Computed example of a mutant assay.
Amino acid sequence: MIIYDVENFPNPLRVRIALAEKNALDSVTFKPVDLMNGEHRSAAFLHKNPFAGVPVLELDDGTYISESPAITEYIDHHFAGPSLTGETAKERAVISMMQRRAETQVLDAIATYFHHATDGLGPELETYQNSDWGQKQHARALAGLVYFDSVLAEQSYVAGESFTMADITLWCGLVFGGFCSVGIPANLTHLQAWHDRVAKRPSIAA
Rank of each mutant, 00 (worst) to 15 (best):
P69Q: 14
S96Y: 07
E67Q: 15
V182Q: 00
G177H: 02
A93G: 12
H47M: 09
E87C: 11
V6F: 09
I95N: 00
H190K: 15
F45K: 01
H47Y: 13
F148W: 03
R92T: 11
G144R: 03
E103V: 07
N187A: 10
P185T: 02
A199F: 03
S150Y: 10
N130D: 15
F79Y: 15
F179L: 09
F114D: 01
G173Q: 01
V94S: 04
V28E: 02
T72F: 01
M1P: 03
L25R: 13
D108H: 11
S68M: 04
V106A: 00
A143I: 14
D34P: 02
G38R: 10
S131V: 14
A44S: 13
E154A: 12
L59D: 05
V15P: 03
K90S: 14
V182K: 00
T63Q: 12
N11K: 09
A193G: 13
L46N: 10
E7H: 09
T118Y: 08
T118F: 10
S96C: 08
S131T: 09
I184Q: 00
H115E: 11
S83D: 06
I204C: 05
V54T: 04
F9A: 03
A205N: 15
F9M: 08
D5N: 12
L13K: 01
T164C: 07
S66F: 15
A186K: 09
E73V: 07
C172F: 05
Q135F: 15
I3L: 14
Y4P: 01
T164W: 02
V175M: 14
G81E: 09
A205F: 10
M1Y: 08
R140W: 05
A199S: 08
P69L: 08
T118A: 07
S68V: 06
M36G: 06
H195S: 07
M36V: 04
G122T: 10
D108L: 15
M97L: 10
E21S: 02
I65F: 10
E7I: 11
S68I: 02
A52E: 05
L125K: 07
T63K: 15
R100N: 13
P55T: 09
P32E: 05
G86E: 00
A70E: 15
I17F: 06
H190Q: 11
E58N: 12
S66A: 14
I184L: 06
T118D: 05
Q137K: 06
T112M: 03
Y74D: 05
P32M: 08
E39N: 08
V15T: 10
P10Q: 07
P10L: 01
H47C: 07
A117V: 09
F176Y: 14
M36L: 13
E126C: 12
C180I: 13
F30R: 12
A166D: 03
G86P: 00
E21Q: 01
Q99T: 09
H116L: 05
F51V: 12
F9P: 00
A109Q: 03
G144K: 00
V54L: 06
R100Q: 11
L121A: 13
T29S: 14
V33N: 01
F30D: 04
V158H: 02
D132C: 12
V15I: 15
S131R: 12
L35I: 07
A159S: 13
A141C: 06
Y128E: 13
Q99A: 12
Y74F: 10
M98E: 03
E73I: 11
V158I: 06
N187L: 11
Q155W: 08
S156I: 04
